[in-house]
Every structure is written in C-alpha cells, then in structure tokens.
Write a protein that binds this DNA or RNA. Structure first.
Lengths: 202, 202, 202, 202
DNA sequence: GTATAATCGAGACGGTACGTCTTGTCTTCGA
DNA sequence: TCGAAGACAAGACGTACCGTCTCGATTATAC
C-alpha cells in the first residue's frame, strides 16, 4: 500500500512529440495568417486546418502568438549576424538590412508575424516577456558593434548605445506598424547615416 | 403617413446625441482602461459602467478602439505645438518632449491607451487608418520644423524629413511598446541630438 | 398663485386622434400580418410601414395584439347573428358557419389574426382578458339559442349550455390552431349534429 | 493531419452527450416554466439555472420550444393509454380524463407548458410541426377506440372519427386556453356523453 | 513482447463577449 | 402644440472562441 506517485500536472514529454503534427500546426498557422491576418488566426482555426485537436496546441505552446513566433521567426530571425568589418556603418548595415528586408512586405510573411506579435504583446503580459526576448537577439549584436566602434574611435565614447539601438530598430518598427512609408534600403541608409554621423567624436 | 420613405441604413443624427451619455461613455472607458488594461476593456463593461445600452455605443463608434481614441486623445493629444524658435533642437524638443512625457508611464493613462490603439490597429484594418491619422497630427508640425531648419541652414537641404520623423517617433514608440527602458528626457535628448548632428550641412 | 393643474400622465384625448393616422396603422398591421405572419409583425415594423412614430401606437393601444384585434376583428367579427328560426340546428348553423368560414383560410386574414391573438393571449395576461371578451360575443347568442331549444323541448333541460358551447367553438379553434384538417362545412355539420343529437331529451 | 476534411456543419455526436447536463437542462426548463411562464423562459435563464453554457443548449435543441417539449413531454405525457374495455365511454374516459387532469391547473405545470407551446406553435412554423406530433399521440389511441366502437355497433359506422376527436380535444384546449371555465370531470362527462350519444347507430 | 502510459483527433463543456434586435419610454425638432 | 422620428436603457438573441475536460485509438517507451 505504498502511496503511488501523485498524478500531478505532467509537463509533456518532448521525446514523444509527433514531428508531423508539430509541422502541420506551424504550416497551418502560416497559411491562416497570410490569408486572413491575425484576426482570423484562432486556435480553433489552426487546429481545424492542421487536422489536429486543440489540446495538442495548448499542450505545446502557451499562447497563439507563441505559435506564430515559432512558425515564422525562430526558424531564422534569431540568427542575427555578428559582423566585425572594422567599419561601423558596414556592421550596422549587416545587421539592419536583413531586419528591414524581413519587415518590408507589410502584408505577408515575417512582417505580418511581427505585427501580430507586437499586437499580442500589448494584450498578453506573458507573451510580452517572450517577445522582448526576441528583440534582445538584435540588441546584443548591435551593442557589440557600437561598443567596438567606440573603441575604434568611430563613435563618441559616451554615446548611449541602448538609445541608439532603440532609434534604429524603432524606426523600422514604426514604419512596419503604421505602413505609411516603405521600409526600403534608402530608409535604412538614412537611419544608419544619421546614427553614425550624429555620434562621431568631436 | 404620406410617402413611406424607404428605410435605408440611417446614419444617426449627431444633433440628437445626448451629451451626458456621450461623456459618461468616455469617462467609463478611461476608468476601465486605467484600472484593468485593454484586455478587460469590453463594450459590455463600458456600457455597464456608464449605465448605458450597448446599442448606444455601437450607434456612435465603429469599434472599441475608436472609443478609446476619442476618450483619450481628442481630449488633448492632437493639440501638437507648432514651435518656431529659430533653433532646430529647441523646436524638436517642444514637440517631442510632451509626446515622451505622455507615453512615459507605461501602465497608465495615455501610454496604456496608445499601446492599446497600436495593438488594435494591427488587428483591425479600418481602425488602422484612423489611427494613422492621429500620428499625422505629429508629422505635420515636425515636417514644418525640419523644412524651416533646412532653409536656415541648420539641416542638410537634401535630408529626408519623413525618415527623420520616423526615426524620432519610432524611438519613442519602440520603448513604449517594449517597455525595456525608460522614456525619459535623457532619451529624448539623445534622439534629438543624433538627428540634428547627424544631418548638419557639410 | 393658484396651483396650476399638475402636468400628470395625460390620458390621451380621443377627440384629438388623427383619423388618417389611425387608419394607416390598422392598414399597415393587416399588410404586415398577411405578408409575414405574426413573428414579423413588430411595433417597429408597423410604425415604419404606416409612416408613424412608435409612440403614436403605444399611445392608443395597450399591446400589439390589441392593434391586430381592432384591425381585423372589430370590423365584423363581433357582429354575431342572433338567429331564432325555431330549429336548433338551423340556429347553430347561422352562428357557427360564419365562424368556421372566417377561420377556414388558415394562413390569411381573419384566421391569421385569430391565431395571433390566441398566441398573444397566452403570453400577455392583460390581453388575455380582452381576448376572452371577444369570445364572449359568441357565447351570448349561442347561449340564447341553446336555452330556447330547451324551452322548445329540442334539448334536454339539464344540458350544460356552457359545456356545449365550448365543445363547438373548441372544435373550430382546435383545427384553426393545429391546421391538421380543414375547417369546412362538413366538419361544421358533424359538430352541430353531434351536439344536437347527443343532448336530445330522452 | 492527413486529409484535412472540409469542415462541414457537424451534427453533434449523440454518444458523447453528457447525460447529467442533459437532465439539468430539462429540469431547469421545467422549474422556470412552472414558476414564470413561457415569457420568462429564456435560453439564458435556462443555461444559468442549469449551470450550463448557452452553446450546449443550442447544440442539442433547435429551439427553445423544442427544449420545453422534451422537458415536459418525453417525461410522460406521450404515454397515452390504449384502453380496450369493450365500452366506448369507458375507453374514452381512460384517455381523456388524464388529459383533462393535466391541463386542469391552468397556471402551473403541464397546463402552463401546454399553453406556452400552443402559443409558440402559432409564431414559429417549425415548432408548429413538432407540436402537432405531440397531439398525434392522442389521435392514434382515440381513433382505435372509435373504430372498435363502430365494429361493436356502439357508434354509427359512417361517423367521422377525426371530427369527433377534434370535438373532444378541442373542448379541452378551448377551456385550457381561455380559462373561462374549469376543466373538471363533469365537463369531461358532458363531452364524452355528447359524442357517444350524438353518434349512436339509428 | 508485452504491458503501460502518453500523445493524438475529436469535440463537448462552462464561460465571456460579441454585435444585433426588439421593447417601451423619453427627447428633439419641424410643421 | 402636436406628432414623426428616433435616441435611449434594458436585456435576450444566436455565434464565435476561449481554455479545460473527457473519450477511444494509436503509438512508443520501458519492463
């Protein structure tokens, strides 16, 4: 009559995860988001489209936006380059141009996902944290680039790296979210030039 | 009794709008938003708190976000200053510092409303248009300030005003939305200094 | 400083009633009932169709069914014949055949109104009373006819007139309400013959 | 996961129906109907009283009236006796007395439900069909009783059974709906005696 | 190899909020 | 000064999703 282990709330065992099911969910998410926007992207719709039970989604992801995040982003976006060309503008370009490019097509793919996640983050505090993590993956490389530029004398040593990073990424997200002007390379050049020229040592 | 005019989908007659009801709805919206955030802000809750029928809200506003917009914004946010001090930094400061200040308290008041509206704009295309209008009310004055600075020779004549505006407002909204760093005056100064110094005539 | 007459809740002054408006409402009611059935007959629809304010209807009638009653019924239904042919069957026929005829066309006119009123009477207790009054206009003449038949020796003197009346009118309304069999003269004859033969003196 | 079968409008699977929930809904319906009448009987109230989501009701019943019908009827009302005593009056009594008794207490229980259903049937054509089915459950046994009486020579062979049935049930429903006189056994006796005596073979 | 146990599809369930509809009262405006 | 027009509070409607839960039917590990 030894007490059996309490049933408890099992964390699901990742080894038993069905890879085909996993893939089907991510694919359904992409299809729905691109065809109908975030409004139409419901857990029910994903489950139906993927031919999957709702519980299977809830088992593996904490929120709808987390599915979107994995479906679109984690696959490639967090692989941020860590350039070190010896030239500040060049380094910034290496990091920012892919970001601008991903976000350029406002109504499709990564851009749509990014907007959706930003919206969800404003509504769902738990997801907000996760989403900030994603942005951190840009902040790190950008920070290194800026600090090295200070060491090389390309940037004022007292420049506020954090503020400059927000200036550059903010510019990108502002256009992404409002869609009032194109997120093209010309814009990227203005952003980079302004930051670099605006913070040269005297 | 005479010609039974075909029913048609009447726009309601604004002259017949009950001012007290109008005010009660906006006040209830502010109270709910500040106490519970956008997630808890439902049309049902607004109606209950304001002592109003739901239909009355649907009659006058096309979406929840439109109510929020009017509740928070029409009150004062669109009154953007049009400074002309003869000094670019000074002019930018006059416009941007109030914006930064409004958005500084991330979890209350205007900031909460701004985040809510940005989120809704990503989900609801109709509201997106309305919301961009709000931002336009900053773009105009900033554009004038930058153009005058070009005339005075404080700014390179070929500087891309639109891009610089997005750089400055983007910085503000990026911190508002991610909340990873304070929207304080120090940040405002970095933003302004970078834009001004980064685009001086050679 | 004599106290002015208190404003009070005016009973409407019947002298000021606008006859054209009155007629328009009744006509609209008939048209709507015949075209869409009782379900579609709403106060709003009557008002719209008659080109009349809703208040005007509420001012003069206590319920929707009261409008129907006036629109259809008072026009002719309460003019029940008071036959005295010296023959019971003949007398009953004189009263019942018009009733059967009115109710025969299940989906139009008087029949529709009768069904509507019976339904409303089950839901609205105030109207129930009014509606019973309408039925009383048949009970009176039928009662006289039966009593005279007792005097003439055509009917058992202890026959329960009330019960016999309910038997005859009940038969009619049962078919009206369920529509499972025709309300024709053959049925009327069976009803009359059964009542007359079933209650002859021994 | 394999073929994403097109969604289609699933009928729910009756095997998965939760019996306790089913019962709770029917009980809540009876309680509400008996206490407040059909007017107060709303789907929302049933759901609240039963501690059930509204969707659960809409999933299993096509209309409020269908719930009422099942709640009251399936419970016992459709178990109509099939007497065969060899005596017509006796047989009719066996069938009709229970009907009269159920309907006798005009403002409570079964009587209230019956009136409500009759009203709904006049407004809702779909329910009308369902409701007629309920009455059929009396017509069948009454028809057999009358036909056997013809064979035994108690009834004229050319008597119109359908008409006689409507005469008897109509009498009952007429009093039920108008409430102007009691639905007691005396009335039942008059009804039965009139039908039997009124259609004896010559 | 066989039990054991978890995942899976499916979808019922209690809820919340949606946006619409109708009721009966109250208010405004025009004739 | 009255009535048409319609705004208003109230509240039920039927729908859409939410996130949890229970069912068998597969798997797939672990014994």
């Amino acid at each position: 009559m030894i007490a059996p282990a309490p049933p408890a709330n099992h964390e699901p065992d990742p080894r038993r995860r069905d890879a085909r099911v996993h893939r089907a969910i991510l694919e359904a998410t992409v299809e729905l988001l691109e065809s109908g926007g975030y409004k139409r992207l419901t857990i029910e719709a994903i489950a139906a489209r993927a031919g999957v039970g709702k519980q299977t989604i809830y088992r593996w992801w904490p929120s709808k936006a987390a599915v979107v995040m994995e479906a679109y982003i984690a696959a490639g976006l967090e692989r941020v380059p860590e350039p070190d060309t010896g030239n500040l503008s060049e380094d910034l370009r290496a990091i920012l141009v892919p970001v601008f490019r991903w976000n350029a097509a406002y109504h499709r793919g990564t851009a749509l996902a990014n907007k959706s996640m930003m919206a969800e983050a404003q509504i769902n505090p738990v997801f907000h944290e996760t989403y900030v993590q994603l942005h951190r993956s840009w902040w790190g490389p950008l920070h290194h680039v800026l600090e090295r530029a200070k060491e090389r004398g390309e940037l004022r040593p007292d420049a506020d790296s954090g503020a400059l990073i927000d200036l550059m990424l903010g510019a990108s997200w502002y256009r992404l979210l409002l869609e009032h002007a194109p997120l093209d390379e010309r814009f990227a050049e203005v952003v980079i030039a302004t930051v670099v020229n605006g913070n040269r040592p005297r």
